[in-house]
Every structure is written in C-alpha cells, then in structure tokens.
Amino acid sequence: MLDRRLIIVSGKGGVGKSAIAVALALRAQRTGQRVLLSAMTDQIGAAIHLGAHRLEYEPATFHGGIEAMAVNRAEALDEYIKLQLRIPTAAPTRALSRAMQVLADTAPGIREVITMGKPIFDTWQGRHDLVIIDAPPVGQLMSYLRAPAVVADLVPTGAVRDQARRMSEMLIDPDQAALVLITTPEELPALETAEALAELESEQLVHLGAVIANRVLPPLDVPPERLATLPDRPASEAAEHHVGLLNMQSAALAPLPIDIHLPYLFGVHTPTEVSAQLADEWDNGA
C-alpha cells in the first residue's frame, strides 16, 4: 500500500484517522521513505499524534524523520497562483490574490480545489516519496474529491481548468493515489463506511487502497454457559460487557470488506504512544 505517491486517510469523525495517518507515516519512514504528512483541514489530531504543539504551512520534521505540515488556505492560494498558474511576476498578484481569496471563500469548488490541491502539488514536486493526507471526515472529503470535476465543469477554459483536470487524473490512478478508509466496529460508523464505499464505487473519484477497522476488542475465551453461572459481581459484569461489545463489533463489521484489524488499546496512552503502538501492531492485523 505504501508504494504509492499519495495516500488519503479518512473515515467518520472520531474513528482515529489522525492516529492511523501518523502510524502509516511511521511505517513508511521506517522503510526509508521520505514522508510528508499533510493535515488538510483540521491539524489538531495530526499535531498531537506527532507530539507537536501545532503544525505550520512550512513542513517541520518530527519523530526522527517524518515531515509534517498543515494546509492553510490563504497560503495555499498564494502558492497556487504563483507556482501552479504561473502568473508572471509583473501581474498584480496581490490584487489577484485578494480577489481569488474572495472568490474562493464563496465559490465552493475553487476553495476545495485549492485545499486538496496543496498536497497533490507537493506530490508532483517530488521532494518526498510519499505524501499522506490526514483528510477531513469522509462526508466532507467527498466534496473535496468531487471539486476538481466540479471546477473542470464550471470553468470552461484556462489554467485553473487544466490544473483541476490533472488533479482528477492523479486521484483516480491506482498506481499513484489511494484512499484508506477507517472505521470502528460500531453500528453507525460501519453503516456510514458502507455508504461511503457505495458512493466511492459509483463515482470512481479515487482508488480505494484499504478499509481498516480500528479499536477491535480481543476475544474472550469463556463459554456462555460459564458466564451464566458467574456470581453477580464486577468480574461477571465486565465479562458480559466485553462479550456484548464483541457481538456488537462482529455484527457491525460483518458486511464490510475489512483489510486490516487494529486493536483497541486499553488504558492510558499518550497520543504519540497510540500511533507508535498502532504502527507496531500493523502486521499482526493484516
């Protein structure tokens, strides 16, 4: 999976996207790849799992080698105008930049193309072997993935349209880009994952690289007959709680094509410990 240029990590809110994006970056980095982790809309999760206070637009190095940054739309817009649209320096770029900023605030396709465009441009620049995007929740991500096509439809000619088309082509090329979808083994996240998979299947906006189940509980090898005879005290309550959750988890995951199972981590862990532990557990879960 890590042999592509661009990996987009998404899933429903609260399923552990940022922790897993950082775990993936750690794994890639261990095999000697130059990795850039790019927090697309919300940087808090990625920052704390890297042990950073905050991420800047300019990449900084963490965890002995992973570079990480946060996409800031105003800066991404400036860079887009200067580098991607190749506006000659004589042109009134500040005025244009302000005008584009206003347009981008209001026009949804353009705003999203600029945010989504930044990590894609970083991939094209080739300073890293792999760019991992810590993406917004899957519901919002669909608008970002659709944005290049929306812009290509809305904008009949010109450099903006050409860029948008190039972005679409990269996203749907399975050799270059893949989406990693995270779910937890709970009823509603699993349901939303199934819905997202159906949308992805029908719209073909990006190649699906893997579906990951996070926070999967370990089995409890005690037969139900024994549970029924346990005296009523915490140990039996905890056992019934665990077995109930296990049943719920397997029912939730049953309809999903899960590629990797990552374990529920019991107890207190710092966010950096969580990502490191998930990176270690990766091969056990495949």
């Binding site: 409890l220 090898d221 915490p234 140990a235 056992a239 665990h242 019991f266």
Partner: peptide, 22 residues
C-alpha cells in the same frame, strides 16, 4: 475489582478481562 482466583484457563481469561476493564 479483581477477577476469580482459580488457575483454569477460563479463570485466567476472566481475570485478565477484569484487569483490562478496571
């Protein structure tokens, strides 16, 4: 809370489970 004291596999499993959830 602590799990059952026994040494059978099931007791051990229950004890570990209680430890996790505690």
């Amino acid at each position: 809370a602590r799990g059952p004291k026994g040494t059978e596999a099931e007791d051990i499993a229950l004890r570990e489970n209680m430890a996790r959830w505690s």
